[in-house]
Simulated assay, not measured.
Amino acid sequence: MNYWAILVAAASSFLLGGLWYSPALFGRIWNAENGGQPQTGHPAKVFGVSFAFSVVAAVAFAAVLPAGTTLEGALSLGLLIGFGLVATSFGINYQFSQRSYKLWLIDGGYHTVQFVLFGLVFGLWQPG
Rank of each mutant, 00 (worst) to 15 (best):
E72C: 14
A62P: 04
A32R: 14
H42W: 14
A62N: 11
A32K: 13
Q98E: 12
V59E: 05
S22V: 12
S100C: 11
A67S: 15
F90K: 14
Y101F: 15
T112V: 07
Q37V: 15
F90S: 07
G128A: 14
M1D: 08
P127N: 10
Y101R: 14
H42I: 15
G48M: 00
L15C: 06
G17Q: 03
F51T: 01
G82K: 01
A11Q: 10
S50H: 04
V46M: 15
A11K: 13
Q37D: 07
P127H: 14
P66L: 08
S54L: 05
F118V: 05
G18C: 01
D107T: 07
G17L: 03
T40Q: 15
T69S: 15
S12K: 09
A24E: 01
V55N: 04
G68M: 10
G84I: 14
A58Q: 00
G68T: 06
L117F: 04
W30S: 04
K45M: 13
A58E: 03
Y3Q: 06
E33D: 12
L105M: 09
W125C: 10
A24Y: 10
L25W: 03
I29W: 03
P38E: 12
S13I: 04
K45I: 15
A24L: 13
G108P: 01
G78I: 01
T70W: 10
A5K: 04
V56M: 03
A87P: 05
L103Y: 00
A9T: 05
S22T: 10
L120V: 14
A32H: 07
F53K: 14
E33N: 08
H111L: 09
W125Y: 10
E33P: 02
T88C: 07
T69V: 07
L15H: 07
Y101P: 03
L16Y: 00
S100Q: 11
A60D: 00
V121C: 08
S13V: 06
Y21A: 04
W4H: 13
V56H: 03
F14P: 06
I6V: 15
Q126H: 08
L124A: 10
G35A: 09
V113Q: 02
G109R: 01
G35P: 02
F115K: 00
T112Q: 00
F90I: 13
Q126T: 12
P66T: 12
G109D: 01
A10C: 08
T40I: 09
A32N: 11
A44M: 12
Y101G: 10
L80F: 13
G18A: 06
V116D: 02
I29G: 02
V59F: 11
F83D: 06
L16T: 04
F90T: 05
I81G: 07
S13R: 05
V86S: 11
T69Y: 00
F26Q: 00
F26S: 04
F96W: 09
G35H: 08
A32T: 07
V59Y: 09
F115S: 04
A74R: 01
Y3A: 11
G84K: 15
Y94C: 01
L25Q: 01
L65Q: 12
S12D: 05
L117Y: 03
S12Y: 05
V64Y: 11
G109Q: 03
N34L: 04
G78H: 01
W104H: 02
Q114D: 02
A63Y: 12
G18M: 04
G17K: 02
F53A: 15
